[in-house]
Design a protein around this nucleic acid. Sequence first.
DNA 1: TGAAAGCACAGGCATATCCTTGAGATGGCG
DNA 2: CGCCATCTCAAGGATATGCCTGTGCTTTCA
Lengths: 305, 305
Amino acid sequence: MLSLHQLRCFLATYEHGSLTAAAEELGYAQPSVSEQIRGLEQTLGVQLFRRVGRGVIPTTVADTLRPHAEQTLAAAEDTRLAAQQVRRIETGTIRFGMFGVARLYAGADLVADVLERHPGVRVELIGQNSSEVHEDLRRGRLEAAMIAMPGVTSEGMEVRPVARDEVVYASADPTHLERPMTVRRLAEASLVMPETTWRTDDSVRTLLRQALQGTGLSLQTRIEVEDPEIAVELMGRGYGDTVLPKGAAEVLLPRLAPHAGFVSLRPRLYDYFAVVHRAGARLSPAAELMIELATARIQRIAEPV
Amino acid sequence: MLSLHQLRCFLATYEHGSLTAAAEELGYAQPSVSEQIRGLEQTLGVQLFRRVGRGVIPTTVADTLRPHAEQTLAAAEDTRLAAQQVRRIETGTIRFGMFGVARLYAGADLVADVLERHPGVRVELIGQNSSEVHEDLRRGRLEAAMIAMPGVTSEGMEVRPVARDEVVYASADPTHLERPMTVRRLAEASLVMPETTWRTDDSVRTLLRQALQGTGLSLQTRIEVEDPEIAVELMGRGYGDTVLPKGAAEVLLPRLAPHAGFVSLRPRLYDYFAVVHRAGARLSPAAELMIELATARIQRIAEPV
DNA sequence: TGAAAGCACAGGCATATCCTTGAGATGGCG
DNA sequence: CGCCATCTCAAGGATATGCCTGTGCTTTCA
């Protein structure tokens, strides 16, 4: 079987015209190199050197094969170098999970931060939804992610909260915003809510469910949509009120519902941002980097914990 | 240390997304492949797959390294294929030794014969002079050759005569050609002879020396030149007579000395063509081919022995 | 919740690799 | 012609490699 070691011995011998010199360069004993050459000649079925008592002389076959051997070794070296570059985050792809609202807060800045420090890398920010990110983590498609809590959590995940964001009540009707919104009145409100598909996993909905738990009340959602942007726009047009993290409200309301406003809930509810990855996993340098940068970005917008 | 085997296991695993499937394809047990992957990860210092209980998932590092691994294996395969092609004389270089006059007789036809049967090869016909060819053989730079005999012969060479060519006396003066040239009259002739540099090794001169040995006579060379062509041309212009193999005379006289002719010597002298290579050497297919074709060509012109 | 799939780990065996040493052959060189 | 350099070959041993079997853990799926 052809081996890189054989090719290395071959080239060293070719260049020095001597097994002894080749062995010296490679740090082996001369019979070892001799054996490698013989093995190579046998696997290829050709004679590479003519043994002429003193020294060896490359045959024309050796002349022909030398460029191929060099290219093979160069390709192997390239493989090694590529791995080193990836290791030092000079190149390669960094894939990181981030659910919708977190991406909205910090996505562009996070990518900019990464490229600032590591101009050669590719960046993939994965995940429309926290629950999807979670699934990718569980299946191993993602190494680490920034998710919203509370939400789906399964065994074997390590979750580290890094910031919290108050959940607020937003409305286009100023009379709805005269005082903080209580849970009791919330249950009577006519709401337009996003994340329809993920309604059972969505962190805001989970928070509201928990707050309503034991009161016998439940949420009235008049309109269900997927995108927070659409929910906010509908709220702005007066089709209903909505509940969303304060950070999202500050970003979306001026743009999509300029006449609307928001108030706190009573009791206050908090959406948490957390770093999550498989429990017991040793994180790659790239993942550590992403966690560090994403945490820094999130903590500029939301309150660190 | 990076190995081709590791890369093969890596690619098989990457493509199947499973160590078990890769092992099956490669014909190994699953732990063997697992070990190879682990070894590769260790030598490269990166994680290639995420182990997720059931199955393995390639990391982005694996995505990045896969093309490099493929190229390395392709280069190795290329090396192997190049060797196979050389082995079957489909490509590569055939180097063969042939001294001046033999090349003159059969050189172009011999190369044409080779290229007819093996269109992909390169051909090198080496050697201005029999003695130089001999040195190349001894040093291993040449595998085999067609030489003139008698000439220099050292120990350790296997010499097989394949044809003989009568040595003739050529002159532009018809009175010199009225009867066969005796050795005695030869010693009195005014000669123009080629192969000045190699005069002690040249086979025609060696033959003449042997013929004159014991007579007390010696050769008179009026003019010494290197090329047989120049010697013949000078002879044609009447500056002296010359001695050369009959085959060479038949080729050169019509072209360079149209009014000259030649006669036999008495006793007749014969120049021998011989195949020669290092004793005990196993010849490559390419060398066998050259010997076969060169012999056939020479035997068409000179008398087989 | 049990069965099946898939991987890691451990133990063990066979072989390969690489080393050393020493003897023998061969060719170059003074 | 003898010495030196260099290669081959052989023997022997230490170590590494490659591979297998068996086992246990985790995850998936019915």
